[in-house]
Write a protein that binds this DNA or RNA. Sequence first.
DNA 1: TTTCATGCAAATACTTTGCATAAGC
DNA 2: GCTTATGCAAAGTATTTGCATGAAA
Lengths: 168, 168
Amino acid sequence: MQQQRVRVTPQDDTVAANFRAVIEGHGGRWTRERLAILQVIREMRGHFLPEEVEQRLRKRGHRISLTTVYRNLPLLVEAGIVRRACVSEEKRGGGSSYEHIFGQEHHDHLICAHCGLRVEFSYPAIDVLQEAVAQSYGFKLERHHLELIGCCPDCQKRACRTRRREAT
Amino acid sequence: MQQQRVRVTPQDDTVAANFRAVIEGHGGRWTRERLAILQVIREMRGHFLPEEVEQRLRKRGHRISLTTVYRNLPLLVEAGIVRRACVSEEKRGGGSSYEHIFGQEHHDHLICAHCGLRVEFSYPAIDVLQEAVAQSYGFKLERHHLELIGCCPDCQKRACRTRRREAT
DNA sequence: TTTCATGCAAATACTTTGCATAAGC
DNA sequence: GCTTATGCAAAGTATTTGCATGAAA
């Protein structure tokens, strides 16, 4: 609770500007609540639930309703600041999680299907090929999302033999 | 409604066997409902909702409850026959969709962020690199999931200028 | 001031659970 | 026969919506 201060980075202005641009594009307004939500989300690392955003806001002294968080998340997605996380990355069950992406180093995920371990990595060579694929279909690539799902070293050691499946 | 017949493929036995193996691994039983669900799902192309499975079952004369579909979906996932689709692939809002994967040619998706167009592709060279990444982290790769999100040719022509964002 | 955002409560939508009955093994 | 699966209804969550009030522009 002693690191209340906002971590200011060079992208700060850009991020806020993106958000504002989206909001104004919808004929919307720049409110204190939106600023607060943006700030809190910018500090988020990894995946988060809408409810966690609300809790963090509360810890910082803001009293912003969960409804408002819900209402703004789509705008943040549209602004490219967060994305909805893939279900296979989720614990299971309930709500959809989001991930803060803008201004973060882009990364993809290695996920252990057995223990749930998530490792972030980035591998430029793959990015290059992705660009090639997109071009061959005439797409202009904006972003991508890659998950490699397998068995992590520990689970392998653990003689982790789950369902064997004779994949084609 | 005239193509009621099951599209039998060489993998039929394997698919059913995988499903049965998972079921039996849980001390479960092989029921007519499970067979019917499996058959219907095997005919599914693209993404589908639990509710769509139930509707198709009904069209085929089965009267299997949505609850049962829900109860079996996790087993089908465990058997590697379907996977939960990524949220960013969904229309929006509501439920989680699934995708039939086993026995299907593996493919990834190119998704247009503007009109929602989804194109399937496969690109072996990327797969090779993914394997390399996994190995470098000691992971044994089981499957992967890649989405390339961008602007499709049509939307580009349409001078589709949505939110411009100065990605880092 | 005019319009949009917010908060609260109510409504929805999706998914899970409890229990009696039917069905595998 | 013993145990698990199913169907139905009820319960739970997650998310959205309606409306009065407060806040931007």
